[in-house]
Amino acid sequence: MAEEIPPQLRNQLAQLQQLRMQLETVSRQKLQVEAVLRDTESALEELEHIDDNAVIYRGVGEILVRTSRDKVKEELKEKKETFDLRLKTLERQEERMQKRFQQIQQQIREALGGEQVSPAGG
């Protein structure tokens, strides 16, 4: 029969599990932000190679509205700045969570006397 897990250890395991889920969420958010950034950067790069008087449209819902190259460039640059900042925030958040994760993992390992901690996966 399995031995009773001490309450403190059970609590640490629950924290570890919760952190793992939070890390997955942050990682998903990071991927989404990175995708938006790639898309925005690619549009900005494309605009660099387009004539000043090229015909440009902005997608609004299902329709396309005509706009100017300079206006679009400004909008995309602002968007890029916003998402760069969001990415940095997520990276910092992820780093903090990783450290906390390793800390708890170490505590559990010590409590178990050097045995392997299974719910990690980190």
């Binding site: 898309d39 950067e41 690619s42 549009a43 494309e46 605009l47 090229a54 902005r58």
Partner: peptide
């Protein structure tokens, strides 16, 4: 002679 192509970031160009 003119095609509208999506170039990213919700922007399309002719």
């Amino acid at each position: 002679s003119r095609i509208i192509v999506r170039i990213g970031g919700g922007i399309s160009a002719e």
